[in-house]
Amino acid sequence: MAYFERIDEHVFRATEHVSGAWETQFQHIAPALGLLAHAVEADCDARRSDGLVIGRLSYDILGKVPVDVVRIEVEVLRPGRTIELVQATLSHAGRAGVLLRAWLMRPGDTAGLRATPLPAIAGPEDMPAWDPTTVWPGGFIASVEVRREQAEPGRAAFWVRTPLPLIRDEKVSDLARMAGLLDIANGMTVRAKPTEVAFPNLDLTAHFFSQPRGDWVGFDTSVAFGSEGVGLTTSVIHDVHGAIGASDQILTVRPG
């Protein structure tokens, strides 16, 4: 019971729990984003021992990825003593499906400066349970637990967690686990019924000013549609201790 099974150093098999919301024969890309983050962290740990942390994850989704075997390759684009820019590519049958560019940064002690004006959201224990399978099909959506307070269509705060490991019999960081849930934001407070309007995202960029802790991922999310077929889902990201970052997803909005 996991989203992926490792075959070798670079190759992973997606399980039925990865099946997508728009088309179930293709992957919901959320777990793949976590898999790429884990690959970047594992590559960094294999090369150096100074504990760089990820400050930014920027994904470009190049196309649909079947629920099948995928391959991941990692390369360092900009090496450095205190910062690195690393790229990871997820491919299927020789075709790139997702690109990740991640900034890794040397951590320091700034506990005395810690502060944010970003407002808190109610904790998961204070939000009602909500069943996302009432809106979306697919194995990934069925695998998650959601607590949600919706203000209106396209505006909500919610918490998400999953009992399934990202990779079978393999430990991953809290950040990689969280990265595997971030892409769900676009579907948790829909502005239009997905049976009437398609609005898949082409990318996801997340910035972190604190490293995540715990199983729950919190979102304070707004969805906007423009008048020229483009939309934006933007979220402040939380763990149970407070806001830790933000993410954006650009949408292609397709009525009918």
Rank of each mutant, 00 (worst) to 15 (best):
R177V: 00
L100T: 00
L62Y: 07
L175Q: 13
V86N: 01
S58V: 10
L52G: 05
P137T: 08
R213K: 10
E41Q: 10
G139E: 06
R106P: 02
A185I: 06
D131V: 14
I7G: 07
V230R: 13
D45T: 05
G108P: 04
L164K: 03
V135W: 08
A46E: 14
A185Q: 08
A102L: 10
L52H: 12
P31I: 01
Q249C: 12
S222E: 11
G139H: 06
E145T: 14
V70G: 08
F4L: 06
R155P: 05
M127D: 04
E5R: 13
R161T: 04
G112I: 01
V76I: 12
T89G: 03
S210A: 15
V172F: 08
S222V: 14
L90F: 01
G51L: 12
P128H: 11
G51N: 14
Y59H: 15
F209N: 11
A42Q: 08
A157S: 15
M188G: 03
I7C: 13
D45Y: 08
R106G: 04
T133F: 12
A42N: 04
R148F: 04
A206N: 08
K193Q: 10
A39I: 01
H10Q: 14
L36G: 00
N186G: 08
A102M: 09
T15N: 07
R148M: 08
G112A: 07
E41R: 02
D220W: 05
L104S: 02
N186Q: 13
A198T: 05
S227P: 11
Y59A: 06
G256N: 12
A179L: 08
R161H: 07
W103T: 07
A157K: 11
R78G: 01
R155K: 15
T189L: 05
L33F: 05
M1G: 14
R78P: 03
Q150D: 09
G229S: 11
L52N: 08
A206Q: 08
G214D: 04
L204E: 02
R168Q: 15
P66D: 09
R81D: 14
W130I: 13
L99K: 01
P163I: 10
A192D: 14
A206H: 09
V253Q: 05
I121V: 12
E84C: 02
M178I: 00
A142T: 09
M105P: 04
I244Q: 04
D169V: 15
L166I: 03
R191L: 15
T82G: 09
S143A: 15
Q87H: 07
L36T: 00
N186T: 10
E5M: 08
E41L: 06
A21P: 04
R168S: 14
E5L: 10
S143T: 09
L166K: 01
V65D: 01
G97C: 06
L100V: 02
P153W: 10
T195M: 07
R13K: 14
P124G: 01
